[in-house]
C-alpha cells in the first residue's frame, strides 16, 4: 500500500543527497573494513549531506585505487611498498599515512594446557613442525595441533611476518580455519591445540599466552595497554592513507576517526585505539 510513496521518498532523498552533498569513498583492507564501516555509519548520521561508500578488497586494492584516483581514502593493514610509492609519485599522488588503530594478535591454547608463556622462537618452532609435543616445552605429553588462518587472511600475513619471519607455517597436519571465530572454536575443542586470533576474539573458552621476543623476556599478555605501549610483540598498525594532507570532507572523516569518539568505536570492535581513552 505505502510502498510507492516510500520508494519515491527514498529516490528523492538519494537524489537530494547526490545533488547537495559530497561523496566520500573508502576502499581497501578487510581488517580495517569493520572500523571504516562503523565509523562511516556514525559519520553519516552526523553529516547526512555526505554520502560515504565503504568497500573492501584488500590493502593492495585500496592503495591502487587511491593512486588511480578512484577512492579518497585507502584502508591499509600495512604501509605502502616502495613500488607503490614509485607509482604514486609518477601519477602526482602524495600518500599521507594516518595511523588510526592497532591490531594485536593473541596466541591461544586450550584452557587445560598448563603452559603460561612462549617466546616468538618457540611459537615459530611449533608452527614449522620442529616441536610436535607439548612435553618438549615442559607441558603434558600431548601431541601439538597447530591451527592457522587460511592464507588469504590478513591475520595470517601478519603472523607470518612477525612470528615466522616470513616463512610459511608448515607443521604437518596443521588445520586451516576460514575465520577468527572458527580458530577460537577449534582451539576451545582441542586439548592439544595452539592457534592465533585477533584480540577481539579472545573469550573464556580459550587461554591467551604471555609472549616474549626472546627468553630474556619480559613475557607480556595481549591487552590494549600492552599494544599501545609497544611491549606486546605481535601487533601491527592499521592505516588510512590519503592523497596529500586532506581537506574538506576527507579531513573531517579522518579527524572523526582520530577523535576520542572514533577511537572508542575502534575499541568497541576489538581493535586497539592509538591512545588510552579516559573512561
Amino acid at each position: 500500500m505505502f510502498r510507492k510513496p516510500m520508494v519515491a521518498a527514498v529516490v528523492l532523498l538519494v537524489g537530494l543527497a547526490c545533488l547537495a552533498g559530497e561523496e566520500l569513498t573508502l576502499k581497501g583492507s578487510t581488517t580495517v573494513l569493520p572500523i571504516a564501516q562503523l565509523a562511516a555509519e556514525v559519520f553519516a548520521e552526523r553529516f547526512p549531506e555526505v554520502a560515504v561508500s565503504v568497500q573492501g578488497g584488500g590493502s593492495g586494492v585500496g592503495i591502487a585505487a587511491l593512486i588511480d584516483g578512484t577512492c579518497d581514502i585507502a584502508d591499509a593493514s600495512r604501509a605502502m611498498k616502495p613500488s607503490e610509492w614509485a607509482r604514486a609519485v609518477e601519477k602526482g599522488v602524495y600518500p599521507y599515512h594516518w595511523f588510526i588503530a592497532s591490531d594485536g594478535i593473541a596466541i591461544v591454547v586450550h584452557p587445560q594446557n598448563p603452559l603460561q608463556r612462549l617466546t616468538l622462537a618457540e611459537i615459530k618452532d611449533l608452527y614449522t613442525g620442529r616441536i610436535t609435543n607439548w612435553k618438549e616445552l615442559g607441558g603434558p605429553d600431548l601431541k601439538v595441533v597447530t591451527i592457522s588462518r587460511d592464507s588469504a587472511s590478513g591475520t595470517y600475513e601478519v603472523f607470518k611476518e612477525l612470528v615466522l619471519s616470513g616463512e610459511e607455517p608448515s607443521a604437518p597436519g596443521m588445520l586451516f580455519q576460514p575465520s577468527n571465530a572458527a580458530v577460537a572454536e577449534a582451539v576451545a575443542r582441542t586439548p592439544g591445540a595452539i592457534g592465533y586470533v585477533g584480540m577481539g576474539y579472545l573469550n573464556p573458552a580459550i587461554k591467551a599466552l604471555a609472549v616474549a621476543e626472546d627468553e630474556a623476556g619480559p613475557y607480556v599478555l595481549p591487552s590494549e595497554e600492552a599494544v599501545i605501549s609497544g611491549t606486546y610483540p605481535i601487533a601491527r598498525p592499521l592505516f588510512m592513507i590519503t592523497n596529500g594532507f586532506p581537506e574538506g570532507v576527507v579531513r573531517r572523516f579522518i579527524m572523526f576517526i582520530l577523535s576520542d569518539e572514533g577511537q572508542r568505536l575502534v575499541s568497541e570492535l576489538g581493535y586497539v585505539p592509538i591512545r588510552s581513552l579516559a573512561g
Binding site: T30, G58, D150, S151, A152, S153, G154, G173, M174, L175, F176, P178
Partner: peptide, 16 residues
C-alpha cells in the same frame, strides 16, 4: 588426518 578439498581451497582463498 585433516584434508583439504578442491572446493574448500577455492572458497578459502578466492576472496583475497
Amino acid at each position: 588426518s585433516p584434508v583439504r578439498t578442491m572446493t574448500a581451497t577455492v572458497a578459502l582463498e578466492m576472496a583475497e
